[in-house]
């Protein structure tokens, strides 16, 4: 997955919880929990979709705070398929 695809996947996953979520113009350092006021249930919902979209299991203790961290993880991929 390219970084652009990863960013699109993140945006789509966010929209399940925040229908008008828009990443346009947001810097890579943006904390998505803070920016979109996500609670822990919202976050679980989003990680599930990221995991489905990326095709691999995302562990709970992965750093998923910022846009850069999420895009990095998704585009790096992982050796463990779901």
């Amino acid at each position: 997955m390219t970084p652009d695809e990863a960013r699109t996947l993140l945006e789509q996953s966010l929209r399940v919880v925040v229908p008008d979520a828009d990443l346009t113009g947001l810097g890579g350092e943006t904390d998505i929990r803070e920016r979109f006021e996500l609670d822990s249930l919202d976050f679980v919902e989003i990680v599930e979709r990221l995991s489905q979209g990326a095709g691999f299991r995302i562990e709970e203790d992965e750093d998923l705070r910022t846009i850069d961290a999420i895009v990095g993880l998704l585009s790096r991929g992982t050796p463990h398929p779901v």
Binding site: S40, V44, R57
Partner: peptide
Amino acid sequence: NRELPVEQRLVPS
């Protein structure tokens, strides 16, 4: 959560 499938993951709440 390490054992559960992603879609069944728990939150402390």
